[in-house]
């Protein structure tokens, strides 16, 4: 990453207020093509809200978002997905009653055409597309080692598989940028390790840029090239993992939280400590 690649996803100065609470304020992000970008911050810092703003679940009240030159802010979530921004959810949101295969096929829905007449009469165009969707979905499932579970109900899958299925479904939308919301949540160390390599290989294989929210600092520091740190809805630091790790503001934000939880006096600690330790577990 010596040459600066073109900016793919750019958020400038976006913000939203919920009933007086500034959930996200003046957030700016630049995710270049093929980047692996981390978004971290203490609990309640506004990371998921930022994702919701980017993907249109909430409407931005200030600022703008562009993806490869197209403006996303003001568009509805499905239009944003069509533009090439796909995501997973912190609390997995699969289509539980549907089969694993159907979940992934739904991912590629937005790249197809769906005419009722074709559907009802099963025209060749319809069958072709349906077959293609299925083949593609099976191929994706194969990449994630889920092909054997294609016929299972999504909700019957073990937790780790559900996480992977969600990523798989998001990739089926043919995204330019993939937003992963705490993909390692609830995973054990070995699962996390394999997740890290999966994320790296996704970038290679699908050529997508990845924006990652993660609590596991080890994982983020390990795989991300660039990290943005949020606290109280605002960017407090941004840069390489090494830079962010040593930024006093970041340490203060994290340790402050630790102290708050410990003593409840709300005063922020100033002691210097390794971030990796501060948030381990």
């Amino acid at each position: 990453m010596s040459t600066a690649p073109a900016t793919l996803l750019e958020a400038s100065d976006i913000g939203i207020t919920f009933g007086g609470l500034k959930a996200v304020q003046g957030l700016s992000l630049r995710v270049p093509t093929g980047a692996l970008h981390g978004l971290i911050g203490p609990n309640g810092a506004g990371k998921t809200t930022a994702f919701n703003l980017l993907t249109g679940v909430y409407q931005t009240q200030t600022g703008s978002v562009t993806l490869a030159g197209t403006t996303l802010s003001g568009k509805r979530p499905h239009e944003i997905a069509l533009a090439g921004l796909s995501r997973t959810f912190q609390n997995i949101r699969l289509f539980g009653e549907l089969s694993v295969l159907d979940n992934v096929m739904l991912g590629s829905h937005l790249r197809g055409t769906h005419r009722l007449i074709r559907t009802v009469f099963r025209t060749p165009a319809f069958v072709r597309q349906e077959e293609a969707m299925r083949e593609r979905a099976l191929e994706l499932l194969g990449i994630f080692g889920l092909q054997g579970l294609a016929a299972e109900q999504a909700k019957s899958l073990p937790y780790g598989d559900q996480r992977r299925l969600e990523i798989c479904r998001a990739l089926a939308t043919e995204p330019k940028v993939l937003l992963l919301d705490e993909p390692a949540a609830g995973m054990n160390p070995s699962e996390k390790k394999s997740l890290a390599s999966t994320i790296r290989s996704i970038r290679e294989r699908f050529g997508v840029a990845i924006l990652l929210i993660e609590h596991d600092m080890g994982l983020v520091m390990d795989i991300c090239e660039h990290i943005t740190v949020l606290d109280h809805g605002q960017v407090i630091s941004a840069g390489t993992p090494r830079f962010v790790q040593d930024d006093p503001k970041v340490i203060e934000a994290y340790l402050g939280v630790v102290e708050e939880e410990g003593t409840g006096n709300g005063e922020r600690g100033t002691g210097k400590a390794s971030l990796g330790k501060a948030s381990a577990g």
Binding site: G19, T48, N52, V57, Y58, F89
Partner: peptide, 8 residues
């Protein structure tokens, strides 16, 4: 009534 945001 007050506006309620759906949690995602």
């Amino acid at each position: 009534g007050k506006a309620v945001m759906e949690k995602v």
